[in-house]
Write a protein that binds this DNA or RNA. Structure first.
Lengths: 163, 163
DNA sequence: CGAGATTGTTTCACATGTTATACATATGGA
DNA sequence: TCCATATGTATAACATGTGAAACAATCTCG
């Protein structure tokens, strides 16, 4: 390190926060450090992170969900989810039927094979999570999760303030 | 909500952490909540988040950087960075010259136009960051950044423990 | 009832993420 | 010198992120 200056001062004279103090970068790095633990495990089952999120959402629901509901729970954007559902259907893990009440909707549920996949993947996935929890500290992790929720809350809805 | 059960207990009998307690999901949501503030601003200048990261890295460096150095600082993978550099070169914002000492490397620097772009974008970008800091609390934000660094540290290097 | 607005989902177009591989240049010995 | 290996970067191939637009079914209100 070169000193205690909190911001860089490049030749252009532009005052710009260094990456080390950038919240988006910090969140990105932390997430990558975490996901690096899970990806290889999921890959051995032919699953991507996002496909796994969809399977998880349907597992936790206990009843068929429409696409919008799954999008919210998995935090996937509609175009991504649409493609992923096509794949999961072809893999025989997810079943999609039209909603009789509102034919714009399709209702999603796990197939038996989908449930077996979840049953195979979940234990090791939870074990990896347990390792992370142990390494970082369970209470500390809870506090971190709470603070991130606090950040979301703080940032929710101050759209047009800089006008 | 249905109760105080910390984990879902779906019909399959699979014990799986709900999304609300998932660290990867929390990091994803927090990052998205943050980036949602910056993306429209960057878009008005024709910049994506990643292109902006490259410009920032070169601004802060003060000297030409090779591609690997930029990849590390921006946390971009080599294939993504390679494509982005092609774009930034075509936009006239970044200059790439072969390293005479080691011709495998190319050295990257901002063009004058690149510096002008940074000078245009940086002030509002910092202003948005300031709003976030104010909303969430500066000290609280520092603490959150420190904890995420702690998470990275805790997760660094325990690759083959679950064998 | 019927045209217009709304909603759920998909498609398009382009940028990036991710892994594996190719390519060129460097480097370290036999 | 020459080969084997290592290193820096780029390409390939596929999956996802992102914003905009298309599409079909539904709703609303005159």
């Amino acid at each position: 390190m070169t000193g205690t200056t909190p911001t860089v001062d490049p030749p252009t004279g532009i005052d710009l926060r260094p990456f080390a103090r950038s919240l988006p970068m910090a969140l990105l790095r932390a997430r990558e450090a975490t996901m690096r633990r899970f990806r290889p495990h999921l890959a051995t089952h032919g699953l991507t992170e996002q496909r796994w999120r969809v399977l998880r959402a349907l597992t936790g629901a206990g009843e068929p969900l429409d696409v919008g509901e799954v999008a919210e729970r998995t935090f996937l954007l509609a175009p991504s989810l649409s493609r992923i559902l096509t794949d999961l259907e072809e893999l025989g893990l997810v079943d999609r039927v039209a909603d009789t009440a509102d034919r714009r909707r399709s209702l999603l549920s796990l197939t038996d094979e989908g449930r077996r996949m979840v049953a195979r993947v979940a234990p090791e996935s939870e074990a990896i999570y347990g390792q992370i929890e142990q390494r970082f500290g369970a209470a500390r992790l809870d506090a971190l999760l709470a603070e991130m929720q606090g950040l979301e809350d703080a940032l929710a809805g101050f759209e047009g303030e800089a006008t």
